[in-house]
Every structure is written in structure tokens, then in C-alpha cells.
Design a protein around this nucleic acid. Sequence first.
DNA 1: TCAAAACATTGAACAAGTTCAATAAATGAA
DNA 2: TTCATTTATTGAACTTGTTCAATGTTTTGA
Lengths: 193, 193
Amino acid sequence: MTELLTQNILNHITLSKKELESFCSLFNQKEVRKKHFLMQEGEICKFEGFVTKGLFRVYHIDSNGFEQVLYFAQENWWITDIDSFTNEKPSQLYIQALEDSEVLLISKKDKEFAYNKIPKIEKLFRVMTQKTHIALQRRIIDNLSKTADQRYIDFIEKYPKLFQRLTNVQIAAYLGISHEFLSKIRRKIASKK
Amino acid sequence: MTELLTQNILNHITLSKKELESFCSLFNQKEVRKKHFLMQEGEICKFEGFVTKGLFRVYHIDSNGFEQVLYFAQENWWITDIDSFTNEKPSQLYIQALEDSEVLLISKKDKEFAYNKIPKIEKLFRVMTQKTHIALQRRIIDNLSKTADQRYIDFIEKYPKLFQRLTNVQIAAYLGISHEFLSKIRRKIASKK
DNA sequence: TCAAAACATTGAACAAGTTCAATAAATGAA
DNA sequence: TTCATTTATTGAACTTGTTCAATGTTTTGA
């Protein structure tokens, strides 16, 4: 059950078998059925999660009622609202399962406990946050400099598997364009081949 | 000389006077004259910096020769290319002084040294990275959901002082629009008042 | 102090992306 | 299977933002 998780951890840092077991035992498994929510706007995010099965979208609804996807999380991805979780304030995000899914959740208290008991865990999360940080910077630059066509092509190349599990509505909400326009982009690309 | 720095640190964590001095002594001051570069594309970022005077812009030049500003860093801000610094790979960014400036620089080795000698420093950087992370997420959502007019108004409200030190070309490169269009936005806003 | 360079504004033509409404295709639950 | 719902496509009119070229203004450095 925590196989994927241990593998993921060992990709970032080295831990003894004991430390691994100790850390993994702090997680609780949760099933989330398709279309159900792991979290909704206004709630305080009580967990940091690791997806072991399925697919989630993390999104925001703006004042005009439009949805923007911050990121998708499939198997082997971490998922949380870092702002709400860290600062214990109401979230502005929704986390919804796009397929029947399973996550391993760790509470803030248990995470703090792990930081103290296994100092290398602090490094784990620092390294992970840095990686996300780099990806976010990359995305800002891409959003500023690239046209929607190019961002769509990049998305397919970067996440070919994920792409196949998503509808155009979801992809458009990630790229920041209307799904109608995405449809026109798809036609243009198809006609070029 | 390290007054601003110690103040900044104590905003995040608590350190003894000795620890503070020990940590601060790892920094070297550097002057950067207006228009000069602290780092250029292709270099490996060897430092993490803290601005004590002046103003920098951190930007990228895309394949069409357009510049996108990732962020500005004025007094009391940290500055680095986290990707290049962390992974010791060539940077894709330029860091340029927009005014005569001064920074305190710490090398990777000395930062690692500090992590080991003063474990709370690890927390300092984790907390700072998290804050930046949250700001980046916010910016992505804003870029996806808001019109250029609104992003400009938000920018002025959020950074009223910084705004006055920047040219329209720089602000436009941050907002992701042409400076001509920014000029038209300014006219529109002015006429409404 | 003065010429050059950088900065800001404007208009006109154009390109990128949205909105709305209509229709077709795919999916899913009973 | 079937019918309702969700998803995808398309066109036309519209809005947002770009590009380019011209002009005026401010800053700067020799």
C-alpha cells in the first residue's frame, strides 16, 4: 500500500528501513470517488497527500465563476494547498477526483512530529518544495511568453499519459483558454499534419 | 551592514545572537552598478543573495528575443536562480541591477555549512521557499484569470513603492503585455478618474 | 550643457482569444 | 438498450492585446 510512497521518498533522500516504516505509518489511506472532493474552498487544509491511484485536479474559481486549474495530480504526485496547510487559513482551492482515486494523507501534527523525529524528512520536503518552485517559475515564464498553441503542444509533450486522461475542458482550464478555442487549436494542428 | 539581514531572519525564525553572527559572517557584500549584471544566462548561479540596497530584475529572454520578468527584488528581498543554484546547471535567467545596488551573497558551500551547523537555518529557507511558492501560485492563477488592466491595478496596489521605481517597459514585461498596450491601459484608467 | 539614448504615447491594421448559440459525438446510469 | 448528460466542434461577431511606425518627452553621460 505504501510501496509507491517509499519509492517516491527514496528518489529524494535516503532513509533506513526503520525510518521509512516509521514515517509511512503516519499516513492514512483515503478513497475518493470520481467527482468527489478531497477539499473545498473555505476549508482549512488539514493534510498533505500522496496519490497512489487515480487523478485529481486542484483548481480555483474566480469571481466570474471561471475555473483555473493550478495543477493535476496523478499517481506518485503530492497534493495539498500549501498556503492553507502551512498558515492554517481557509483555502481558496478545490481538490476534486477526476477518477476513482486513492490518497495517503498525513496530518500537520504528524508531519511536524516526523520533522523532529527524522530530520531528513525536513530535507525531503524542502527538496520537493524547491522542485515545485522551479516548475512554477517555468510555468509563469511560459504563460507570459508562449502562445496558447505552443502551450498546448508543450503540455502534450510533457505529460503524454496525463493528457489522455483529461478532457479538453480540463486542459483548457490549465492552459488558461476557453475550451472552444482549444478545439480550434486542435483542428489547426490536425490539419497541418 | 547586516542589519537588514538579521532583521529579515528574525522575522522568520528565532536565533541566538551568536548563531545570527555566525550565519551572517558567511555572507559577502557586493556592489552592482546600475545596468550591470549579477548573473547572466548560461552561468551557473553560485550564490543566494539578499538585497540591502537598490533594485534588481530577474528575467528571461525567450526565443523571439522578448524579455519576461520573473520578479523584481528591492531592499529586503532574497534573490537567486533556485534551479541553477540547487541543481548546478546553467541558468536561463539574467539578474540585472536597475539602480546602483548592494547585495549580501552566500555560496552554496557556506549555505550547506550553515544547514549543518545551525539546523534552524534549514527551517528558515524552507519557510521562505514556501512563501515564495504561495506567491507563485497566486500569480499563476491571476495570470490565468485576470485581464491585463486588472493585473496592472493589482500590481500598483500590491507594490506601490516598487511601482514608482520602475519604468513602464519593466512593468509590462512583468505583466506579460507590450509596453504600448500598457500605455493604453494607463490612459484608459486616467480618463476614468 | 547638449546630443544621444532611453522612455512614453498614439493610431491604424492586424492577430489572438472569447462569447454565444447551434449541433454532433461520446459516455454513463438505469 | 436507451435516453439524458457531458463533452467536443464549429461559425460569426466581438474584445483584448500586438505590431509597427511616427512623435514627443525625459534622462543621462561625455
